[in-house]
Design a protein around this nucleic acid. Structure first.
Length: 750
DNA sequence: GTCAGGACTCTTTTT
DNA sequence: GAGTCCTGAC
């Protein structure tokens, strides 16, 4: 028998070997569920199942990629053909193939949350509604909730319960807004995140021939993190597996933490009704954590009423007690945690990778960032404001989106006057009105502006449309994503604007754009990507999960800072669960709404079970919030833990001598949300008076060069793979940067 | 049409 | 503290 089977315990082995028919795996934290899933797929392929006929839905693209890689090492190249990815990415792919059934074009854009809210703000304004009452955020959440329950705009308008709800919230017009929003998305040939699932359901409901095709295609369907799927997702998988009935779901009700986005813990219970012949296997042995950690987690989750019977246990060592750290401010909390990490590293010879700091809200990361930076400990932030949400990145992406799909209204709004070309709101409004009057698309008006409008603003509009047409031509000529993107960055003027900005922020934005071009280059050069068009690249970017963010540079040994939600599925040797204060964790909103705290408690459970060896809890007695100092109480969750497992010596320590700084966050002034964190003390460089870019074709390692923004440096590495060449240059006072030679201006020093 | 400065609003988690 | 919207000067 295969040697991997011998490394499994009995329930794990049964789950791997289970053949035909529905299977539900209830997998406790740290019970080796990923191994089981991986082995199971490998096992299927070894037994002759065609990888093309396996669909595996994971929670992040990164998890999918890792799983694919592991399967590849045991069954080989074929593993590449498994349909694997997040719900959103897999069904976006299917929707692109079948777009015409729904009246969409297959080059549809994917609106992110910012696009959706911006569109809603426009519609609210057009409806002459008070935007203080109809907040885009709230309206968006209502609409999103409806879509996740598969409620269409017409269903919404006709449902008296929903209407009563909206009336009570004093927003009776949400139904009309929802309808208008859907129409506008459709006209823009765009889908938002929820549409990707909603429209897949519509596709399978209204076009049986399409459903038939995929039902027969997918012989085996696997769903990871099943406890976090919503009704919309569940129905898709149920329909897809209705023919072969080989559906395997893996989940843990104790780790269901996405009810807020429609995840339904009942799915686990309903599954047994929908598939009465289901075989249920429980994985209860934890291989990850010490006994102390497992027992602590159990003592917390035991307070929840809604849960399946499950006994998570471990045969690991007892381990050390859980340390509780009390700080007098959020800032001190950062320092104490950073110091503790430093000491742990020294005492046990650990690497940065061994540590994670987990918090309830993204805003909490700052104190830790600052403290870690002072100690010179490298860190990585997962989520929060990610690379792809930065202004300069979104600007360039908006150009690219518009070139692929000229109906994309949100992309249009973003780029029409960027960089400033004298096309203001009045002109844009005039174009929109003209388009509506003549019943043509906005792009029709823009690209033939003389036929429709005359006046001062026609000249800049015309040059804009000429610019876009020249970009579109490149796509028609079959240029790949990188060629188009580089050309757009250079020609649109985006780059010139950033280049002229000599501030630290400008420097960092300029770098970010280069980083994006690097990413596109990598996408094009990656042999696994068969389709190297811009459209495909844009889709992959739109559906990145925040765990998918690339590492900033080659140095991967970093401490991880992230929300507990992002930590799902991960494990670290030492984990710090911070900000354990009432109103913060559990969150104020949960405490205010009369809901029980079971989901918050499951979140706490997830946080605890990330740790392998050592767990630390921390809380602060005061915290800055919108510039005000707020007093805090320890979280009720701290009191719920079985106190035998806690070491509170550092929590009760006398700390009165510590000062509270008047403005502990002032130092972060330059690190605003929309700009990149600047870790190195880079100063803007003024190019030498005789600066002229050199021909870099003969560049060698060791060569001294000048860059107009980064200053002087020495080439440390040359990468000549592919058609484009990259140079890594060590710049004085800045450090190493990787530059694309076709793109960067370098002067070779004699 | 553009820009700077002031008022105003944010309170969770994510694809 | 920080993003967004609004206003008034140029």
């Amino acid at each position: 028998m295969n040697d991997y089977l011998s490394s499994l315990n009995e329930p794990q082995r049964q789950a791997v070997m289970h053949g035909e028919g529905p299977l539900m795996i209830i997998a406790g934290a740290g019970s080796g569920k990923t191994r089981v899933l991986t082995f199971r797929i490998a096992h299927l392929i070894e037994n002759g199942v065609d990888p093309f006929r396996i669909l595996s839905l994971t929670f992040t693209n990164k998890a999918a990629a890792e799983m694919r890689h592991r399967i590849e090492t045991s069954v080989g190249y074929e593993a590449r053909n498994i349909w694997m990815g997040t719900f959103h990415s897999v069904f976006a792919k299917i929707l692109r193939i079948e777009a015409r059934y729904l009246g969409y074009n297959s080059n549809f854009s994917i609106y992110d949350t910012d696009d959706s809210k911006s569109l809603l703000r426009s519609i609210i304004k057009e409806f002459n509604l008070d935007d203080k009452v109809y907040k885009a955020n709230a309206v968006f959440n209502r609409i999103s909730g409806a879509k996740n329950r598969l409620v269409s705009p017409d269903d919404y308008l006709n449902n008296s319960i929903i209407q009563a709800d909206d009336n009570a919230a004093r927003m009776p017009e949400i139904g009309r807004l929802y309808k208008a929003y859907s129409i506008r998305c459709f006209q823009a040939n765009a889908m938002d995140f929820d549409d990707l699932l909603f429209n897949t359901n519509v596709l399978f409901r209204d076009f049986p021939e399409v459903l038939y095709k995929y039902q027969h295609k997918f012989q085996y369907v696997m769903v990871d993190e099943f406890q976090d799927t919503n009704v919309s997702q569940y129905l898709i998988t149920r329909k897809l597996s209705a023919v072969h009935r080989n559906i395997c779901v893996v989940g843990d009700d104790a780790q269901s933490i996405y009810a807020f986005r429609g995840a339904n813990i009942e799915n686990i219970l309903n599954f047994e009704k929908d598939f009465p012949d289901v075989r249920t296997i429980k994985l209860e042995q934890n291989y990850r954590s010490t006994q102390t950690i497992v027992n602590t987690a159990n003592s917390v989750i035991a307070r929840n009423k809604a849960q399946l019977r499950k006994e998570v246990f471990t045969e690991n060592d007892e381990g050390t007690l859980i340390e509780v750290v009390k700080a007098n401010s959020d800032n001190e909390e950062g320092r104490l945690v950073a110091t503790s990490i430093f000491e742990e590293k020294m005492q046990h010879g650990l690497r940065n990778n061994d540590f994670a700091i987990l918090y309830r809200t993204n805003a909490q990361s700052r104190a830790f960032e600052e403290a870690l930076r002072r100690l010179g400990i490298k860190y990585r932030i997962v989520g929060g404001l990610s690379f792809y949400q930065r202004k300069e990145i979104k600007d360039l992406l908006a150009y690219l989106r518009f070139i692929v799909n000229q109906q994309d209204e949100e992309a249009f709004k973003r780029i029409i006057n960027l960089p400033k070309r004298g096309i203001g709101d009045t002109t844009v409004a005039k174009i929109a009105v003209t388009a509506a009057e003549n019943q043509v698309a906005i792009w029709d008006v823009v690209s033939n502006i003389h036929q429709y409008v005359s006046g001062r603003a026609t000249a800049p509009v015309e040059s804009f449309s000429t610019l876009i047409k020249s970009f579109m031509l490149m796509i028609d000529q079959g240029r790949d994503a990188f060629e188009v993107a580089t050309h757009v960055a250079k020609t649109s003027g985006i780059l010139r604007e950033l280049y002229e900005d000599k501030t630290v922020e400008g420097l960092s934005r300029y770098e970010n754009v280069q980083e994006l071009l690097n990413a596109i280059k990598e996408f094009v050069d990656n042999p696994e990507n068969e389709d190297k068009t811009l459209g495909t690249f844009l889709q992959s970017v739109a559906l990145l999960t925040n765990a998918d963010e690339p590492d900033e540079d080659g140095d991967n040994d970093r401490i991880t800072l992230m929300t507990i939600h992002s930590a799902k599925g991960l494990e670290f040797r030492n984990v710090y669960v911070v900000g354990l204060e009432e109103d913060l964790f559990p969150s104020q909103m949960m405490l205010e709404s009369r809901q029980d705290l079971e989901e918050e408690r499951r979140l706490f459970y997830v946080a605890i079970t990330r740790a392998e060896q050592k767990l630390t809890f921390s809380y602060a007695e005061s915290r800055y919030q919108w510039g005000r100092l707020k007093m805090c109480e320890p979280s009720r969750f701290l009191l719920e833990v079985d106190q035998r497992y806690l070491n509170t010596s550092k929590a009760t320590r006398h700390i009165a001598e510590r000062e509270v700084q008047p403005n502990p966050m002032g130092f972060l002034k330059n690190i605003t949300k929309k700009t990149a964190p600047v870790q190195t003390a880079a100063t803007a460089h003024t190019p030498s008076p005789d600066f002229t870019p050199s021909d870099t074709s003969g560049l060698v390692v060791g060569q001294r060069v000048e860059h107009p923004k980064f200053g002087f440096g020495v080439v440390s590495k040359l990468d000549v793979n592919g058609t484009d060449r990259k140079a890594t240059v060590k710049f004085e006072g800045i450090g190493e940067k990787t530059l694309l030679l076709s793109f960067a201006k370098l002067r070779i020093m004699e």
